[in-house]
Design a protein around this nucleic acid. Sequence first.
DNA 1: CAAATATAATTAACACTGTTAATTATCAAA
DNA 2: TTTGATAATTAACAGTGTTAATTATATTTG
Lengths: 213, 213
Amino acid sequence: MGIKERKERDREDTRLLILDAAKKLFTSQGYEATTIRKIAAEIEYSPTTIYLYYKDKNEILYALHREGFLLLSRQFQALAHVDSSFERLKAMGRTYIRFAVENRDFYELMFIMKEPLLNLNTACGSPQDWEEGVESFDFLLQTVEGCQQEGYFKGQDPRLLSMWIWSTVHGLCALQMHGHLDHVSRHQLNEMADQDIINQVFESFVRSLEQFR
Amino acid sequence: MGIKERKERDREDTRLLILDAAKKLFTSQGYEATTIRKIAAEIEYSPTTIYLYYKDKNEILYALHREGFLLLSRQFQALAHVDSSFERLKAMGRTYIRFAVENRDFYELMFIMKEPLLNLNTACGSPQDWEEGVESFDFLLQTVEGCQQEGYFKGQDPRLLSMWIWSTVHGLCALQMHGHLDHVSRHQLNEMADQDIINQVFESFVRSLEQFR
DNA sequence: CAAATATAATTAACACTGTTAATTATCAAA
DNA sequence: TTTGATAATTAACAGTGTTAATTATATTTG
């Protein structure tokens, strides 16, 4: 009696088909262009069919949201081999920034837009199924604690410290992506190359961190 | 022949009437609820009338955008009397955070949303009529340079330094406003009060800055 | 004062959006 | 072969920003 199983498989397939179409639209044309109707057209289904597989648009967005965190998480894991904690911390920052620059729409979805997270906070009271984000933060926290063993950041609470380090790098990405860094720099740093300014600011940040002992 | 002048005055009045209605809706009900039709209903005009005074919705948003920067700029100016540059820097951070918390929608408009700035970058090639933002950054820059004269942040480029200090505080506000700080803290800092977490992280940041000499 | 003109404001409509209710097509079970 | 469930569709609703065509209201001219 494998008929029920096949139906479930079919359902899962269609769910994935929808998600893939959404991802394709999303990464190629951005959030604005990713409408229910366009997703439906992409997979040659009727728009309302999508509602048989996803409660609403936010649920699709949230699914992509999770994929984004998986992607970033994997890039972080590739840094686990770096022995020196402080070197790892720097590498994490560069990876984070590169991820934001190369995956603007994903980054927007993961850290800037508020819609997908609203769904999360209402849908699931227990935030256990939302591990990817916390996982990455844990990795940061461990790295910061490692830095403290190497003599950096003495006497600081590693959790608060991790939070504002994250804030700095996120702030950099967010301001850059929306043109604020460029805008300010055009008035202050005429000689600098626009495209590289986020990296220059980050390196300035790193130089400061190196003095924290 | 003061009739032309009166007409111009009338026009300006209506423009302001629209803007005030938009601001009222915006600050009381947020961005989502601020639709052209609702603004029109608020001032008891037809929706299309608004287009006689503003090119499109972004132009209204951009006008509010400017008001927000004026508001923040004024709060910063109140700190000009603080003699110690480092104390002033700390006060600016607290003011910035308080502004973001107390004026969530304005903050969103000014630093998080990208729509109003798009309009700016296309409309005016010369960014001279967009002074409020740069003005505040200048104030930060001067304060940072003052700190350097007081012995802080030795050997650092004050412009890059100012940028990542801004990034840190903006990142804090942005992550907090969209629930990311709370989310992470629920896993890491169970004992801490949610509402105050942004301030705790900021004070941790300040303690670190104090070691930068 | 009456007619012509400029401009302010409105109505109607377009092309979208997310989403729901009612209806039709499809396919396994009785 | 008919019944019943479920998958998919059509039609529609209540919105959105925005534009073209039309009406109302003043101002200037004959």
